[in-house]
């Protein structure tokens, strides 16, 4: 099994503070990886390094499909392959839902208006909000906005999708609709890295769960192992804290 995403010796500092320390991680194509851990443990920083939203130290390497993640001409290629969904949706408020989804295919992939629109409408149907195409993001509920954000990422036909706590900003009754969309995606062969506090989702959908603490990967394994028989005391403490709150 060759790795599709290869992270070697990843270090990230904010001034003197080490946000990530010596991270080594290999992810296979089509794999669904959930990243869990306490707040401030470096989960967001880790996935934001993969599409270079955060820069990292020079000795570190990240390869996505063998392409090095670094400033310069490869970067556009990497970003076209790697989609991202944010906790706060980050939709473009001045564009309709349809335009939000069409923008990158038009500008980056060079699709025609007609093709981009057809694809955008298909994606909206797929995430279950086809009838909202002409509305503006501000007119939608949080759950609907996050589904638009997923459709927007999918429109670039990425091979990797990064999710940074996609349900953490949602009212509880809307969490389910977004997780349902993500569960469907997990079956399509796209590689997914999901930072989440939804332990039920991680247990059910993940091929592998990574527990992070203090900028390091503490433990990694199949969900049944991590959730039912964690080896590390810190993993146990974290899980008992979140599962019994």
């Amino acid at each position: 099994m060759s790795s599709f995403i290869e992270i070697r010796n990843l270090n990230k500092h904010y001034g003197a503070f080490a946000a990530l320390t010596d991270i080594d991680l290999d992810i296979a194509e089509g794999e669904v990886v959930c990243v869990i851990g306490p707040s401030g443990s470096g989960k967001s920083t880790l996935i934001r390094c993969i599409n270079l939203l955060e820069s990292f130290s020079k000795e570190s390497t990240i390869l996505v499909d063998k392409i090095p993640v670094e400033p310069g001409k490869h970067l556009a290629q990497v970003r076209a392959e790697v989609g991202m969904v944010f906790q706060s949706f980050n939709l473009f408020p001045h564009m309709t839902v349809l335009r939000n989804i069409m923008l990158a295919p038009l500008r980056v992939r060079g699709l025609s208006e007609a093709k981009a629109e057809k694809k955008a409408r298909e994606l909206l149907d797929r995430v279950g909000i086809g009838e909202q195409a002409e509305k503006y993001p501000g007119q939608l509920s949080g759950g609907q906005q996050q589904r638009v954000a997923i459709a927007r990422a999918l429109a670039m036909e990425p091979r990797v999708l990064l999710f940074d706590e996609p349900t953490s900003a949602l009212d509880p009754e809307m969490v389910g609709e977004v997780l349902d969309v993500m569960r469907d995606l997990a079956g399509t062969g796209v590689t997914m890295i999901v930072v989440t506090h939804e332990m039920g989702f991680a247990r059910q959908v993940a091929d592998r769960v990574i527990f992070m603490n203090g900028g390091k990967i503490v433990e990694t394994g199949k969900p049944e192992v991590i959730f039912d028989a964690p080896k590390e005391p810190r993993t146990r403490d974290f899980l008992s804290a979140v599962l019994n709150h």
Binding site: A76, R79, S88, N90, L91, L103, A104, R107, V108
Partner: peptide
């Protein structure tokens, strides 16, 4: 977040400024 979403989508600097 508007800049981050633009960059994550692969928009060039020019498109990020002009469109977003």
């Amino acid at each position: 977040g508007q800049f981050e979403a633009s960059r994550a989508l692969g928009l060039s600097y020019r498109h990020m400024m002009v469109d977003v």
